[in-house]
Simulated assay, not measured.
Amino acid sequence: MKKNIYYSFAVLFCVFTSCSKSNNPEEPGKGGGGYVSGTYWPYTVNNTWYLVNTEDPNDKSDLIIHKELTYNGKTYYQFKPVGAIEGFELTDGFREDNGVFISLYGATSRMGTNTSAGTVIEVNTNLKVGEVFKDEVTLTVSGLASGTIKHINESKILEKAPSATINGKKYLDVIKIEVKHTAINSITGNTVIITYERWLAKGIGLIYEKTKYGELDIKEYSLLSYSVK
């Protein structure tokens, strides 16, 4: 099973390694696993998306929202981590604000090293096709090690399509986005760049994702089934 990318960034940059809107039960022709109006990715605890590698049917990825977090009075949602280190609690989360999707890097304190919290916009679905949006946040590291971790998101709307067919199922009102995420660790000198192409169906969420690590490692996953409310 694919390791959850939301967890992997926390591991990659360990310094010692040098809201959903009004609900409808279901709308015909929109997927069969529920529908939430007014959003491209419904964030509610227990919402689930089951995906499969487009080249390997045995490689599956389950995205499950399993808890809520609060930061600066705002509610964020966290995906259940896969392969997490025992005793290591994730503090990251995601939220939507009127079509703007925001990532939270929660504060951590581990093995004598503290990392501050911060938020960064991942994508603004209100932009026009071809428009580019950039946002960044710098987290401070202190304690046994000191420095910064900078997260930079550069996103672009690739297409707003009336429909898309994934694994034989037709989904309506699909937005295709690209997000280039750069993470720079001043302590280790490491820079990691990951580029995502995501297709989001209105009222349903993620139906397709292509992730590019560096230049050669590319993985693609497509939606098999889902459940949202």
Rank of each mutant, 00 (worst) to 15 (best):
K2P: 08
G168L: 08
T182G: 08
S37L: 09
I218A: 12
N167F: 06
P162T: 02
I65L: 15
T44H: 02
G99W: 09
G87Q: 05
N126K: 14
W49P: 01
A201R: 02
Y71K: 05
G31S: 13
I193T: 10
V36K: 01
V129H: 06
I121C: 00
Y40P: 00
K212N: 05
K134F: 08
F13T: 09
L224Q: 07
S146F: 04
K128F: 14
S103G: 06
A10K: 08
S142N: 12
V228F: 06
A201L: 05
K21L: 08
E26M: 14
E68G: 08
E89D: 14
F88D: 05
G214S: 03
I194T: 13
M1F: 06
L216A: 08
A117C: 08
I204L: 06
I65N: 11
T70M: 12
P42G: 08
N153R: 12
T191S: 05
G33L: 12
E215W: 07
K30I: 14
F101C: 01
T211G: 11
V45A: 05
D97R: 06
N185F: 04
L69F: 07
F88Y: 13
K180E: 09
K80I: 07
S18K: 09
K30P: 01
Q78H: 04
P42Y: 05
E159M: 07
N47F: 03
N153Q: 12
I184N: 08
N24W: 13
G93N: 01
L223S: 01
A161M: 07
V36C: 05
L144R: 12
F133K: 10
H151A: 11
T17S: 15
K170S: 12
Y40L: 09
G73E: 04
N53G: 06
D173S: 09
G29F: 07
G143N: 08
V228D: 03
S142V: 05
E178R: 11
D62M: 14
V120W: 03
E220I: 03
L139N: 00
G168Y: 06
T165N: 11
D92T: 11
P162M: 02
K134R: 15
Q78W: 00
N114Q: 14
N46E: 13
Y226C: 05
E154L: 10
T70D: 13
I121F: 01
A117W: 04
Y43K: 02
Y196R: 13
